[in-house]
Every structure is written in structure tokens, then in C-alpha cells.
Amino acid sequence: MSVLAVISVIAILIFVHELGHFLAARLQGIHVNRFSIGFGPILWKYQGSRTEYALRALPLGGFVGFPMEEDSDNSFSPDDPNLLQNRPVMDRAIVMSAGVIANLLFAYLVFVVQFTSVGVPQDFVPEPGVLIPQVMSSTSPAATAGIKAGDIILSVDNQLLNQGEANVQTLIDAIQSSPNKPVDLQIQRGKQELNLTVTPDVSPEGKPLIGVQLYPNGRFSYQRSSNPVEVLKFAAEEFQNVFVRTAQGFFALVTNFSEMSSQVSSPVGIVDQGRTMADNNLISLFPFTALISVNLAIINILPLPALDGGQLAFLLVEALMGKPLPRRIQESVMQTGLLLFLGLGGILIARDISRLEIFQNVFQ
């Protein structure tokens, strides 16, 4: 059920993104002839009075289609002012950026719904164990040992980790006292308990590390608020924290790609991480949804081919030059970018599938 919940979350976020483009066009009177969730063969479609709505076989994104002059089924005059390509740069920029804006607004609304329905976080209630919110690298000792983000370490070398922040230091001490020596861990992953062995590597600074973040395990108690202003305030603060951390993560990826690239996940990896979080605490689907929505927004605003940011970059060049780049150049850049993204996506999907527990168990 948790897998289906996470897949549904991703599908909703794709829908929200494309709906942003669709509404931005429609509200300006711009013609839209296709609204599609997914790519590839059509599984279901509905032909409306002005737009074809479709679900496609590959749920890796979506698109909003606009009639073009060269389309064989285009029934509009080439100089129709409501064709997208005939609109001023600013109108087109609004359409291209609307998906990003929709995902950011949706992330904020997710926190509003969470704090309205579940309540505003109050006191932190500690629970046994130490939480691993992030595995820093796919080549780290932790990843090699099979440790995943969302795991809870219950014991180290048969020493139970009880409640409180002191257990984080206990675990750190056990790791740092075992350079290049195996450390036995008891792990809770959802409803499972696993016994894993990790061997700390010694960093250039001489510290034994396993390559994870460590947080005290526990949960917040929640109290429903009757003050809507308080809910909006908490939601804004939480949204700001998520946005800043995500933007910092992307900056670190761009400036230190060789070290951070292993943390990039495919949809398969995202679903697996979300499943682990949902198994531990279903409420975590709220921040997970907001986090993925913000990630989707930031990814799409990057000035790269095949992304919204790439289209905005073309519009910026057009605004500066006073005329658009030749269609042939734009199409060549976008097609090349699309092929590169599909190739990278295929590699990431294959890598993340190989990391799934079911495959690791088969090949152990």
C-alpha cells in the first residue's frame, strides 16, 4: 500500500505541474490541443472540445501540447494571435514558468493541509534508536553494507541505543573506535529488523566514517490549532526550510558533481525512499510530497534542454536579440537534450532497480 501511495503522490505532482502550464495558457486564451500525463503509447484518452486529454504508458513526466503551424491537424490560421508562438515573449514566459510556480504553491499547500489535519508540531517525543535520514554516497561503507535512508539503528555491537540524543554520540563513538573494523548493527526498516555489518573507512582527516547523517529517532507530538494564521505561519516556515535545503543541495550537486552525483535518484529510487518513510510513519508522506514537489520545481527551472528552464532560456535570447533563434536550432538542442535525459534516466533507473531489496536478496 505504501508503494501505491508514493506512486500516487508522484502522479499527482506531475499532474499539478502540467496543470500549471495548461491553466496559464487557457487563462490567457492560448490554444492548447494536448494534455498528457506520461509519455509513449496512449492508454486512455478523451477528446474534449478543444483539447485531447491522455494517460500514457511511461509515467516519467507529462506534457502540454500547443498547435504549431506545421501540424497536419492544425486548423488555426498561421497568424492566429492565440497560437503560442504568436504571443509576446512575456505571455509565453508565463506559460513556461507556470508549472514551476504550481509545484511550489502545491508544496506550501501540502504543509497547510498537514498542519490543519494532523496538527501543529509541539514537543519532540524520543524513541529508541538513531535515525539515518540520508546515506551520503552510493559508494560509502553504509551503502555497501545495505543501509538505506530512513533506516533506524537499534543497536551497535549488541549495545542497545535507547531514547535521546546521547545515543547519537554512542553510535559515533562506536564507529570512530573501529577504523577498518566491522561494526555489527541491528536495523529497523519499516516493519522489518535486519542485522547488517558495516566497516568504517578512514577519511583523509583520519576519522573513521560510514557516510551517513545521524539524527535522534523520535516523533513530534501534534496539536490541532484553531488559529488559521498560526497554521499558515508554520506552513510558510516549513516550506522555506525545505526550499532552502533543496536549493543548497542542487548548488552542491552543480559545484561538486563527482561527489554528489551518487545521491541523484530516479523515479524508482524516489518511490523506494518514499515507501521506507511511509512504512515508518505515514505522516511523513506530507513532507515527502512537499520535498518532491520543490525538487520538481527546481529541476524544471534549470536552464537545460528539454526542461522548462531551457525554454525560458530561448525566450531570454529572443528578448535580447529581438527575434527568436531559428526553429531548426531550437529543435536540435531540445531533441539532443531529451535524448541525454532519457539516457541518464535509463541509467539511474537501472542502478536504483539493482539497489532494491528484492534484487539484493536474490544476488546475495
Rank of each mutant, 00 (worst) to 15 (best):
I187P: 02
I301N: 12
G29M: 11
V231F: 03
S258L: 02
I349M: 15
I175A: 06
S226L: 12
L339H: 03
A102D: 07
G20I: 09
A149Y: 02
T336W: 15
D184N: 13
M1W: 02
N74K: 05
T336V: 15
G62W: 06
V202G: 04
I101P: 00
A24P: 14
Q240L: 05
A174D: 06
Q159V: 07
R92C: 12
A235R: 01
G249D: 13
F106V: 09
I298A: 05
N300M: 13
N361M: 02
P59I: 12
R355N: 11
S203L: 05
L348P: 04
E69F: 02
E52K: 14
R328A: 14
G150Q: 01
L196P: 02
Y215F: 09
F359N: 05
N74I: 00
L312W: 10
I30A: 08
Q364M: 03
N217G: 06
R245Q: 14
N361C: 00
R34S: 12
S75F: 00
L154C: 13
G38P: 04
N162K: 13
S97V: 12
G322R: 13
P133H: 06
S261Y: 06
K233L: 10
A313D: 15
L194I: 02
S203Y: 08
N82C: 11
V3D: 00
V16Q: 07
L160A: 14
E193A: 04
G190K: 14
L253C: 05
A25K: 05
V100G: 04
E127F: 02
S284R: 09
P267N: 09
S261V: 12
P59Y: 15
S221V: 02
T144S: 01
N281G: 07
T197I: 10
P200E: 04
Y215G: 05
G211Q: 11
G61N: 11
R92G: 11
M68G: 09
H31Q: 15
F111V: 03
M136F: 01
N158I: 00
V231R: 05
Q192N: 05
P59T: 11
D123K: 13
R56N: 13
I347E: 10
Q223E: 08
N103F: 09
Q114V: 02
V120Y: 04
P133K: 10
L161N: 14
G309K: 10
Q335E: 05
S178D: 01
V9K: 06
V130Q: 07
N167W: 07
N256Q: 04
V112I: 15
S155R: 11
N361H: 08
S140R: 05
V135G: 05
L27C: 12
D201N: 10
N300Y: 11
N167F: 06
G274K: 11
K148Y: 02
L291T: 15
G322H: 06
P182M: 03
P67E: 13
G218R: 09
V168Q: 12
